[in-house]
Structures are given as C-alpha cells and as structure tokens.
Design a protein around this nucleic acid. Structure first.
Lengths: 115, 115
DNA sequence: ACCAGTACCTAGTGCTACTGTATACCGGTA
DNA sequence: TACCGGTATACAGTAGCACTAGGTACTGGT
C-alpha cells in the first residue's frame, strides 16, 4: 500500500474496526473482506488479526468461537460497553483532528491571513 | 498528550507542517509555537525538529540559516517544488481517508444498511 | 553570576501497520 | 489418492513515526 496511507492509518484503523463492529459482530476474515470492498484497498490480513488481538486484550470486545461450514472455526467479535466508550473517544479525537486539518486545507488554497 | 491523538498524528503531522510551510517559510521554534496557538496543544518540540530533519533529508524543503537577535541562529525552512508535490499527495491521501471515515461515522449513528 | 526565554539537536522508547510464513479445515478435480 | 484454491487464524520480524528526556548555545535582565 502507499506509504502515506499506511502511516495515516496508524491510530485510525483501530477506530475504523471498532466502528464496523458497532454496526454488527464480525470475524477477522470478514472484516478484511469488508474493508477491501470499501476503498481500503489492500490492508494486510495479518494487520486485522493483530489489531483484533489488541482490542480483545484491552477489553473492548467480546469473543465467541463459531464453527464454519467452509473452513476452520471463526472468532466472532462483538463490541461491548467499554468498546463503545472507546469508539466514542475515537470519534471525539478524530473530530478535533479532522477539523483542524480541514482548516489548514482551506487556508492552503488562499495564502496569507495572519491570525 | 492523549495517546489516541498521538497515534492519529502519525502520518498527518508531516502534512500539517508542510501545509504550514506552504503558507510561509518558518523555523522550528516558530512552528511549534504556531501549533500550540492552534489547537495542537502540546506537541513536543523534539518532534518538530526531528520531523524537519526528515523532510529536509527527503528534499521537500530548502533551508537557510538566519541570525536572530534573541538567541542562536534560526534554521528557516521553505517548501520547494518537490515539497509542494508531496503536500498535494498528502491532501489526496487525507481526502480519501477522511471521506471513508466520515461515511463510517455517519453509519455509526443509524445502524444497518447492508451495502 | 544566575536565570529565563529563545532556538536547536539527539539517543532511546513505545506503539502501530506491514511482510512473510505457517497452520488448519473444506470441497473440487485430475 | 494427491493436489490446489478458498476460507480462517496466528505470529515473528521489520520499518516508520511521535514522544521522552535530556543536552547545547546565544541573549538580556537582575
């Protein structure tokens, strides 16, 4: 993937996955496929699994092992209360950053205004 | 600073600084102060200097040493052509990411819509 | 002589995403 | 039977970035 996007995903990818899990429970392989369907073109599979381990260890999600007809058992993740709080915090941080950057973007197109 | 914001700044802080330099040339101490004035509350000084070294090594900026009446000489950075191209690339990447995330943010508030 | 403000620099740390590889289960096919 | 592709997870090693916590150096005021 583009190096720039890779760096930008740091700190946001976790929020993205939590947001997906807020809509419905899902397992790693599914999330990866979902992300690829949307524009997140080629997020490495390994990345998602590592992230899911992380959020599980932090207690943001509950896990349930569910047998699959098509392969090995799935680990289905559900967002819990703590995870929902974390997601809310993510949106707060994101909003602050996005707003400040959009301001810069604006000013970037018409130079000089001191304040 | 908040851990979340710290992680989110990875990959975006460079773009932010380039955007600042697109408006006018500046030196490290000045940029740090500027960022603190704006909402980027407590970005560490060391961070900015390290970042400036990086973008200089990549050839995105030109540097000029200017004596100061108030302390040691300043290293004034100016965005050059290559830097302007990098900044444009940054805005492209940012736009893609921000759009996708905003979509998620939207859907986050009214559940289920399959596609 | 000392301190605060200005201005810069650097080694080491922690966190995160990526790469590459390994494991395992299933169905289809040669 | 043997093999391959799709499904599904896991993990060790790598690279990049912001932060911490120092340090250097120049100026003016007390």
């Amino acid at each position: 993937m583009g190096n720039q996007m890779t760096e930008m995903l740091k700190g946001t990818l976790e929020g993205i996955v939590l947001a997906i899990l807020a809509r419905r429970s899902a397992y790693g392989y599914e999330i990866t496929a979902w992300l690829r369907d949307r524009g997140f073109s080629d997020i490495a599979e390994g990345t998602i699994y590592a992230l899911l381990v992380r959020v599980e260890q932090r207690g943001f999600v509950d896990v349930e092992k569910v047998p699959s007809e098509k392969g090995p058992p799935r680990k289905v993740y559900s967002l819990n209360a703590k995870g929902r709080e974390q997601l809310a915090e993510f949106w707060r941080t994101w909003s602050v950053l996005a707003e400040r950057i959009e301001q810069l973007h604006h000013n970037d197109h018409r130079q000089d205004e001191g304040a």
